[in-house]
Structure formats: structure tokens, C-alpha cells
């Protein structure tokens, strides 16, 4: 099986869907001539022309809204935010329009649109560029929220997101673009709303998405050296959430640690924790643990930045707490 990067997997997904459906186009800042700020759209302009690969001025609210309007009348836009930090100036379009129109119109107009781009902290880009807004979007009915952690998931899920008739917020891991993984040469899609067990284990369930899946896998290796087998569950889609997969795992292990790079207050992990206690109360041997970033805007200095974000050691410590080991 070919091994390609997460970035290339996303590129393939868009390329294939644009080949497949002439109504699919991509729009965003630097997506065309510049070949993408993160090179995710590399080569698409050459293949599909300016008509379908549309460079925009810096006007997120404007081009996000244009995407919504175009989607209402039958196109299938992919709107790229250079980072999801900039989606905040377009959030009116995403929440007040994209998420509402199907319902507001009594089912007459649906909005098949993908808002995609990198999300979460990168490296030393400080407070305004290091944010994780999945809990904002996952809060909103009418949206779907997808956060793939591997190249394989990224391609299969992005293709499904483009084909979905609802607005999909597709958040890519900014630090995952270069990560490689096996991706089949033949076409495939992955269903939205279905999670994946990234590592099987019996003692504790780690729930994580996007980059934190890898932090959890690293933590699982450390734990395995002590004889602790962690199961790593990646919901992949936060909305709709594959609650059943998580609950099934926690029923088996009796312990749950939720790891997210977002802030603790009202973070998405809080919702996961609610669902776990709802579904697994009689199976829990310990309080559900959450590992999150610290409740602060992201500092710039590297050592401080590392301190703020969840690290392998933090996950290991949380797991040990659920096992009453320390």
C-alpha cells in the first residue's frame, strides 16, 4: 500500500472529488497560485483552472458566505480557512447561515459545503494562531465536525465530507500535515460519525482526536512497559459522535481518560465525559479523567508552550490515577 502524507491524502481527496463532480470547487486564501499556505491544494489550480480553484482576498466572512449561497443553489464548495483561527470572522456564516438554512427553509434548501483548514496549536505561533475551536462548532446542530488523525482517515473522511449534503467543518491537524501513513491506491471513503479504535487495550480507554491520538498512542507505549494496556479510541467525527464505540470500550476497561488540546472549560471532552458516565456508570472504577491544555491563551516561548499542552507524561499520569497506582 502506498505511504503518503496527511497533506497528500487531503489533496488526493479533493482532486478525486473534483474529478468526480463538476459542482465541487475550492475557494480560499492562497489556494491557487500560491498552491496553498500549507500546500494542501498543491497542483489543483493547474489541473482544474481558476474557475474551480478560486483565490480570494482576505475576507473570510465574504467568501464563506459566498460558499453558502453557492451551495444553496447546487454547487458543492470547499472553503479553505488558512487556519481555523480565522474562521472566527466567518463564524456568522457558518453558524447563522450554513447550519440553519436547511431547517429555516423547512427542508427546501440544503447546504452541501465543507469548511476545512488546519486547526489547533502548531509550533510557537502564539495565542491567536494556536486555538482549537472544535467545541464551538460541535455545539451547533446542523453542522458536522470532522477531525482526522491519520492520512488514511483524512482522505476517506474528506471525500465523505465533500459528498455530504450538510455543512461539514473539517478540521485538520496543523502539525499532522507531514505525517505519513498507508493509504490505498484504490478509491475509498469513510463514513462520517463512525469512530475507530486506534489501539486495542483492556485497562483504560483513551479518547482523543486529531493530534492527541498520537500523543495517546505514545502514552500507551509508555504504559505498556508497565503492563498497562490502553485502548485508544478516535471518534474521528465529533458531530455526530460515535458514542457507542466509546461506551463499548469503557464498559470493557472500566476507566476513561479524555485527551484534547483545547481548553478545559466547556471543552468537547466534557461532553464525552457526560456520555461516558451516562452509558457506563456501573462500569466505571474511577472518575473519568480529562487531560487538556491549560486554561490560558497560548504563550509563545517553546518551553511554556509545551508546558501548556497535553504531553505524554500528562496522559500517563491521568491513566495511573484511574488505576489508583500513585
Amino acid at each position: 500500500m502506498p505511504v503518503i502524507s496527511y497533506r497528500e491524502a487531503l489533496n488526493q481527496a479533493m482532486r478525486e472529488e473534483m474529478e468526480h463532480d463538476p459542482n465541487v470547487f475550492i475557494m480560499g486564501e492562497e489556494v491557487g497560485h500560491y498552491n496553498g499556505a500549507y500546500k494542501v491544494t498543491q497542483g489543483l489550480l493547474q489541473r482544474f483552472s481558476e474557475r474551480r480553484v478560486v483565490d480570494t482576498p482576505i475576507a473570510e466572512m465574504g467568501f464563506a458566505g459566498i460558499g453558502v449561497g453557492a451551495a444553496m443553489v447546487g454547487l458543492r464548495p470547499i472553503i479553505e480557512f488558512m487556519t481555523f483561527n480565522f474562521s472566527l470572522v466567518a463564524i456568522d456564516q457558518i453558524i447563522n447561515n450554513a447550519a440553519k438554512i436547511y431547517q429555516m427553509s423547512g427542508g427546501q434548501f440544503h447546504v452541501p459545503i465543507v469548511f476545512r483548514g488546519p486547526s489547533g496549536p502548531a509550533v510557537q505561533v502564539s495565542s491567536q494562531h494556536s486555538q482549537s475551536f472544535e467545541s464551538f462548532y460541535a455545539h451547533v446542530p446542523g453542522l458536522k465536525v470532522v477531525m482526522p488523525s491519520t492520512a488514511y482517515d483524512a482522505k476517506g473522511l474528506l471525500k465523505s465530507a465533500i459528498r455530504d449534503d450538510n455543512p461539514v467543518v473539517f478540521m485538520e491537524g496543523e502539525t499532522l500535515y507531514g505525517m505519513t501513513g498507508e493509504v490505498p491506491a484504490e478509491e475509498y471513503t469513510l463514513p462520517l460519525g463512525k469512530g475507530d479504535v486506534k489501539r486495542a487495550g483492556t485497562h483504560v480507554t483513551l479518547v482523543a482526536w486529531s493530534r492527541m491520538v498520537h500523543t495517546c498512542l505514545d502514552a500507551a507505549k509508555v504504559l505498556a512497559a508497565d503492563g498497562i494496556e490502553a485502548e485508544v479510541v478516535d471518534p474521528r467525527t465529533l458531530r455526530p459522535l460515535d458514542t457507542e464505540l466509546i461506551v463499548t470500550s469503557v464498559k470493557k476497561t472500566g476507566r476513561c481518560v479524555i485527551v484534547e488540546v483545547g481548553w478545559p472549560m466547556a471543552g468537547f471532552g466534557a461532553e464525552v465525559a457526560y456520555r461516558v458516565q451516562r452509558g457506563c456508570l456501573d462500569h466505571l472504577d474511577a472518575p473519568i479523567e480529562r487531560v487538556t491544555s491549560d486554561d490560558v491563551p497560548m504563550p509563545y516561548a517553546k518551553n511554556l508552550e509545551d508546558e501548556v499542552q497535553p504531553q505524554v507524561k500528562d496522559v500517563v499520569a491521568a491513566v495511573r490515577r484511574t488505576l489508583y497506582l500513585d
Partner: peptide, 28 residues
């Protein structure tokens, strides 16, 4: 079900209660 490397738990004085309530995890 607990990991092999887990240290033996020191048995606490028991039965344990807090204000008359038995403390046990739901799984227990």
C-alpha cells in the same frame, strides 16, 4: 484486570465510610 506491574494496594482500615456512606466505585 489490573496491570501486572501494579503495586499491591495497602489495605486501608475498613469498612470505610464517610458519614455513614460506603465508598466504592460504581464498577466495584
Amino acid at each position: 484486570a489490573a496491570p501486572a506491574a501494579a503495586p499491591a494496594a495497602a489495605p486501608a482500615a475498613a469498612p470505610v465510610s464517610l458519614g455513614g456512606k460506603l465508598l466504592a466505585s460504581p464498577l466495584a
